[in-house]
C-alpha cells in the first residue's frame, strides 16, 4: 500500500510512545505487537485520549505501560470483565484489550466465553507465546503437544484452540497474526478496531527467553516454517489513499471521526474456494489446518451484521452512563414519589 499513507494524519506512531517501559526481554514478540499497535492507531488517527487499553497480567499485559492511552492494568484473567464494564459505560471510547495465552485461556477462560458471546465492540489481542512468560516458562493452555518447555516439560494434554472457540462462541472478526509480520499485523489491528463488534486477534508472539528454542512449536522459526496464507486484508483511508478512485469497491466501509475507511481482501483470488464471511467454511478450514499444525495467518472470519453489545442498553437518544452529569443519575422528586407509591 502507499508509502505516504496517512499523510493526512495528525498522529504518528511516536505519539503513542510513553516515558515508561514494560521491561520486556530483547526480541520479545509482544514488543512487536505494541509497535504494530502504535502504527495502526496512528494510521486511524485515533487520539491517545480516545483509546482505552485494558490489560491482563503477564508480560503481554505489561505492555500497556508502553502505549499512550487511558490504560487500566487489571488482574490475572480479568481484563475481559473490566473491558466489558468500561465499554458499556462509554462506547465512545475505542477499547482494546491486551492479554496473554494463560491470561485468556487458563485463568480467564470462563470470562472469555462470557465476553465472546456478547459481541462487545472491542479489539481483543491475545498475545500467544505458548507459555507463561512472566512466571518463567511453565506450560500454558496453548502449549502444543510435543512442544517441550525450556525446562524440558512436555504436555500431552491437547491445547486450547482459542481461534476455534472464538468462532463458535460468537466473535464476529477473527484473525490470526504473527509478531514478525508487522505489515499484516497493522492491517489486522486496524480492521479489528474499526470492526463494529468483537474482534478476536490471536497473535503468534514468541517468548524469546522461554519458548524460542529448538523443538518448541512456538518459536519464530517454527512459525515461519509452518505459516500459511489466509485472506489478507488491507484497511485504507478512502479519501487519502484513493483520492481519485472513489468508485473502488470496498468489502466493508467504516466511519471513524468523520473519515471513511474501507476494508478489502487482498488475495482472495488466490484462494477461490474460501469465503471469510462463511462461518461454517471458516471453521472447517481452520480445523483442518489446526490438525495439520499449519499456522494460517490472515483474517479468518468476519460478520458485520450483528448488533454490538452496548446497543442492548441504549436507544438512539440515550446518553452513555459514563457521560451523565451527577445530578442526571438520580430520579427526580416526582419520580421518587411514584416509586414509593408501589410500597405505600
Amino acid at each position: 500500500m502507499s508509502e505516504n499513507r496517512g499523510s493526512k494524519n495528525k498522529y504518528s506512531p511516536v505519539d503513542y510512545e510513553t516515558n515508561s517501559s514494560a521491561n520486556l526481554c530483547p526480541g520479545c514478540g509482544h514488543a512487536l505487537i505494541t509497535r504494530a499497535l502504535r502504527q495502526a492507531v496512528s494510521e486511524l488517527n485515533l487520539p491517545p485520549e480516545k483509546l482505552n487499553v485494558v490489560a491482563g497480567i503477564g508480560c503481554s499485559g505489561k505492555t500497556v505501560a508502553e502505549i499512550k492511552a487511558n490504560g487500566i492494568h487489571t488482574l490475572h484473567g480479568c481484563a475481559a470483565p473490566v473491558a466489558m464494564g468500561s465499554q458499556v459505560a462509554n462506547p465512545d471510547q475505542e477499547h482494546i484489550l491486551i492479554s496473554g495465552d494463560g491470561d485468556s485461556w487458563a485463568i480467564g477462560s470462563g470470562k472469555m466465553i462470557a465476553l465472546l458471546r456478547t459481541n462487545l465492540d472491542l479489539l481483543y489481542i491475545c498475545e500467544n507465546n505458548g507459555t507463561y512468560g512472566l512466571t518463567r516458562g511453565q506450560l500454558s493452555p496453548t502449549t502444543k503437544i510435543d512442544s517441550p518447555t525450556r525446562w524440558g516439560m512436555v504436555s500431552d494434554i491437547p491445547p486450547v484452540d482459542g481461534i476455534g472457540i472464538a468462532m463458535v462462541t460468537g466473535a464476529t472478526y477473527v484473525a490470526r497474526g504473527f509478531s514478525a509480520r508487522q505489515e499484516l499485523l497493522v492491517e489486522q489491528i486496524k480492521g479489528g478496531i474499526l470492526h463494529d463488534g468483537l474482534a478476536y486477534l490471536e497473535v503468534f508472539s514468541p517468548c524469546r527467553t522461554f519458548n524460542d528454542h529448538e523443538g518448541s512449536h512456538h518459536s519464530y522459526k517454527y512459525c515461519q516454517r509452518h505459516a500459511a496464507d489466509f485472506p489478507k486484508i488491507s484497511v485504507n483511508d478512502i479519501e487519502a489513499d484513493y483520492p481519485s478512485d472513489s468508485e473502488l469497491e470496498h468489502e466493508f466501509t467504516y466511519e471513524e471521526d468523520g473519515r471513511q475507511f474501507g476494508l478489502e481482501f487482498d488475495n482472495l483470488d488466490e484462494m477461490p474456494e474460501y469465503d471469510p464471511t462463511d462461518l461454517n467454511l471458516a471453521l472447517k478450514t481452520w480445523e483442518d489446518y489446526w490438525t495439520e499444525q499449519i499456522i494460517p495467518l490472515g483474517l479468518l472470519y468476519i460478520d458485520e451484521s450483528q448488533k454490538a453489545h452496548h446497543e442492548r442498553f441504549y436507544s438512539e437518544e440515550d446518553d452513555y452512563i459514563a457521560t451523565l452529569e451527577p445530578e442526571e443519575t438520580r430520579p427526580s422528586r416526582e419520580d421518587f414519589s411514584i416509586i414509593l407509591d408501589q410500597f405505600r
Binding site: N52, G85, A89, N90, L324
Partner: peptide
C-alpha cells in the same frame, strides 16, 4: 432510569465489570 444492569458470569467478573464501568465514569 439511566441504569445498565448486567447479569455477569460469576461474581468476580461482576465486580470486574463494575470496576471497569466505574473507571470509565459510571457509578457502579
Amino acid at each position: 432510569y439511566p441504569l445498565v444492569v448486567e447479569q455477569g458470569e460469576n461474581e468476580d467478573s461482576c465486580l470486574g465489570r463494575a470496576l471497569g464501568a466505574a473507571w470509565a465514569g459510571a457509578r457502579a
